[in-house]
Every structure is written in C-alpha cells, then in structure tokens.
Design a protein around this nucleic acid. Structure first.
Length: 272
DNA sequence: GAGTATGTTATATG
DNA sequence: GCATATAACATACT
C-alpha cells in the first residue's frame, strides 16, 4: 500500500506521480462513488459511462488540481483540506473512502475525512481551465507574469499568493514559507511591493515548491533554514532564532519571524 | 465544550 | 460591476 497526503501543489504532484506509476496503462474495471456530495462536475452515472472499461492514459496537474485521462474524458480530483490518494490492493480499504477506482489488481482510493475534497468528470482540459478560472500553475509561471498578475492589488501579499485565480497551487503553509524565504511580511499590501520585489517573489515561489518536490513533499526533509520544518509559534526562527510569531491574515493562521520579516507598510492589515 | 485545522466558494460589504 | 473580506461547509483532534 502506498499513500500520499496533504494537499498543496507539491503534495498533489506526489499524488500525480503515484497515479502515473501505479495505474496508467491499466483498464478501469469498476468505479464507486461512495459520497456523491463530492461530485462537483457531471454525476455518478456519467462518470461510470465515461470511465468504466476504459484505459488510463495519462495524468495532469494544475495547481492543486489533478486530472486523470481515462478513455476520452478526464477524471477530476481535488484533495480539499484533508484528502489523500492511496493505491491499495483490491481487498484493502481506508477509513474514509469517498471514491474507489479499480484498475487491474489495484484500487485508487480518494480518502477524505472532512469531505472538502471533490471529484468529477470533464471532457477536456480547456473545459476544466475555463470553468475554474485558475491562474497559471505556480511551477510554470515566469517571474515576469507572476509580477504582472500580482501587481496593483491592495490586499495582503499572502492573500494574493493564495488566490488560485492569480497563481494556482499555493496554500497556507507554502505561502508562509515563500514569504519567510523572501523576507517579506505576509500582511504587506501587495501594491507596496515594487515590480522588482514581485519578480523576486515569483522566483522564490518556484524555488520553494521545487525544493519541496525534490524531497517528495516530506517537510521534515526540507533544507535547514526552512520554516516548514518547525512552523509553530514560539519556535526559534531557523535563521535568527527569534521566537516565531503567529497572526491571522485572511482568516488563516500565519507564522512568521518578526525580525526577519519586518512590516514596513504604513497601515497594518492585521486586525486586533 | 472550545478552539483549531493544509481549501474553496457563496455571500456580504464598500 | 469590481475588489475584497468573511462565513460556511464536515469532521477529527488537542
């Protein structure tokens, strides 16, 4: 049994590779939707018709979204907040199975305790991208395009980083890491950063996500100096040992080093 | 029981 | 209509 968990871009990329290595080229012999609430595009009947007895041809990832090409259609998967993809033997099960696709001797299982994940049927990549309105994938976007898409917004730079329509793939944890590495305070207004600073931030987006993928999204294996090895209030900053601070930005817990990431804006976006 | 959690989207607000 | 902020979703865990 193999499993992957934790759903931001690097983790979804690991899930994609798992699918690619384990079931691509196989044929779907059964598909069971165990929670129809998670079907957000098409319906169970359409999914059966499109996928049953068809061959698994390939895998695509865009941001945190996974698409598996089966027959002439695409199986859409999103892991939400607590979802994970698992490849099991056909007689094995997980505790919160929501979708089960049997391919040969293996079962691809979407397990998701909180049910924030989703699945569905798309007929093409174009249909998927236009309907979701996602920005470019965070690993693919150039620093120039990143800067252009970020520029001119008033909201906190962290909120902009996590907006999937601006750039797709960054969530709460990696947003903190990217801003920590770049020494930018997460509450800084986006329009208080220069185009040069935004371009540099764009370079850091790729660097941080690429580094995580290189260690198979195992946060404990990240290089020294990475926040995500011990992202907790009061823990020492991995760079200067100052106790880390925790604030709420955009409704999400945000961990930062108050010394390395000085707030230079005039008005704080943090509510007290 | 209260508080928190790695995400997205509908709804509210200015 | 636009940009932004917030609530709501379902469940597990401390």
């Amino acid at each position: 049994m193999l499993g992957m968990a934790m759903p931001e871009l690097p983790e979804v990329e690991m899930a994609r590779r798992l699918v690619k290595e384990s079931i691509v080229e196989g044929r779907v012999t059964s598909i069971d939707v165990l929670d129809s609430r998670m079907v957000v595009k098409g319906n169970v009947e359409e999914m059966r018709r499109a996928f049953l007895l068809q061959r698994v041809k390939g895998t695509y990832r865009h941001g945190k979204n996974l698409l598996i090409e089966i027959g002439k259609a695409l199986l859409y998967l999103h892991l939400g907040m607590s979802g994970s993809l698992n490849v099991l033997k056909t007689d094995e099960h997980t505790t919160h199975e929501r979708l089960r696709v049997v391919v040969g001797k293996r079962a691809l299982v979407l397990d998701d305790p909180r049910r924030f994940g989703s699945c569905g049927l798309y007929m093409s990549e174009e249909e998927f991208l236009s309907e979701k309105g996602l920005g470019p994938d965070a690993l693919e976007i150039s620093e120039e395009e990143f800067a252009i898409r970020m520029a001119g917004r008033r909201r906190a730079v962290k909120t902009a980083l996590m907006d999937q329509r601006t750039v797709a793939g960054i969530g709460n944890l990696y947003a903190d890491e990217i801003l920590f590495q770049e020494k930018v305070h997460p509450a800084e207004r986006t329009d208080s950063l220069s185009m040069d600073e935004l371009r540099n931030l764009g370079i850091m987006v790729r660097k941080v996500l690429g580094t995580s993928i290189a260690v198979h999204a195992d946060l404990s294996q990240l290089p020294e100096g990475y926040l995500l090895r011990g992202r907790n209030k009061g823990e020492p900053c991995p760079r200067c040992a100052t106790p880390l601070d925790s604030v709420r930005i955009g409704g999400r817990t945000t961990v930062l080093c108050p010394k390395c990431q000085r707030f230079r804006g005039e008005v704080s976006l943090i509510k007290t």
